[in-house]
């Protein structure tokens, strides 16, 4: 504050500033006003995001018991972390979550890019197709998960009827670990591929047309154009889509919670489901928060690594 007052004072004493100085001073003042005016909003952001995160970290590092009068914290400890690292359920949930993230994001990005390319070429009905594509994406996951549960039902499910009709037996889609994991991935891919496709379409529309004309003049075929021109130009967009998807997929909760309940056995128990179960069923808030923090740290590291590799591309976007 004092410093800014000093700056103001000097600004007042100096003779008429050059246009250049005027601009800088003006910008500085605007920035200050900006901070002043946005601080209430920033305080709220801090309250609703930073505080819960910090509280979660504190709980994960304490001997915590939930009581009728809120949380009681007794001393600093790493025992919550050592407890989860030694638990086979946590290790399984971690492996499952990473595997699930890698597979669904990869499939969604490839499919989404292909759909995006097709959409961009559509001369008629692109708006309609975009609107249709948005239907799965806009559906609340809890509802789409219920729908998929009906589809995959082991007695009256339509998917089983189809398999049975074409002579593939009566598979229990949600009844065995492998098929339940695949079923859950299908439900996720159905829902989030449109998200990637729409980001890709947006990226394609923004591409400079001259480059394609130049490629055509140079005699590049459509295949060469795609690999040498479209895809490299699209990389920042795709990188952004991947980043969003990793963040969402790694924290997956609603889909397994509704579709499989984390089962069969613990086959589809993601880190988020495990954390929920530990905190809200077992009332073990220390370990539950340790799971939540571990998941956040891991996905943060994953995203930072990804950004390091794709930094240039993302900042271009």
């Amino acid at each position: 504050m004092t410093r800014s007052m000093l700056e103001n004072a000097t600004a007042n004493e100096t003779p008429p500033p050059t246009p250049d100085q005027q601009v800088t001073g003006h910008r500085r003042r605007t920035t200050r006003i900006g901070w002043v005016f946005s601080s209430p909003a920033l305080v709220i952001v801090a309250l609703v995001t930073i505080f819960p995160i910090a509280f979660s970290v504190v709980l994960s590092l304490a001997n915590v018991t939930v009581t009728g009068n809120g949380f009681q914290l007794a001393g600093f400890t790493f025992s919550n972390y050592s407890e989860i690292f030694h638990a086979s359920v946590w290790r399984y949930a971690l492996v499952f979550t990473v595997f699930y993230t890698v597979v669904t994001v990869a499939v969604e990005v490839i499919l989404g890019t292909l759909i995006g390319l097709v959409l961009e070429r559509l001369t008629k009905g692109r708006g309609l197709m975009m609107a249709l594509l948005l239907v799965p994406w806009s559906m609340i996951t809890v509802i789409s998960a219920e729908l998929w549960q009906y589809i995959f039902d082991g007695t009256y499910g339509v998917m089983q009827a189809i398999f049975s009709a074409i002579g593939l037996g009566q598979p229990q889609f949600l009844g065995t670990p492998t098929s339940a994991i695949i079923s859950m991935m299908v439900a996720d891919i159905w829902k989030t591929t449109p998200f990637v496709a729409i980001i890709v379409v947006a990226g394609l529309v923004m591409l400079p047309q001259e480059v394609f004309e130049a490629a055509a003049v140079d005699g590049a075929g459509s295949w060469t154009t795609f690999w040498r021109v479209t895809l490299p130009l699209l990389r920042p967009t795709i990188a952004l889509a991947i980043l969003f998807r990793i963040l969402q997929a790694f924290g997956i909760f609603d889909l397994p919670f509704v579709l499989t309940g984390g089962g069969p056995g613990t086959a589809t128990t993601s880190l988020a489901v495990l954390s929920y179960r530990t905190m809200f069923q077992n009332l073990n808030y220390g370990a539950g928060n340790a799971i939540a923090v571990s998941a956040s740290v891991l996905v943060l590291i994953g995203c930072l690594l990804f950004l390091k590799v794709f930094r240039a591309q993302v900042s271009d976007a």
Partner: peptide, 23 residues
């Protein structure tokens, strides 16, 4: 026991795995 939810989870997750034949 106050730890019943975790105890029950240990029961039903493992028995479900045995029932579907994955173990």
């Amino acid at each position: 026991t106050p730890n019943y939810p975790a105890l029950s989870t240990a029961i039903y997750t493992n028995i479900n795995a045995a029932l579907n034949g994955s173990t």
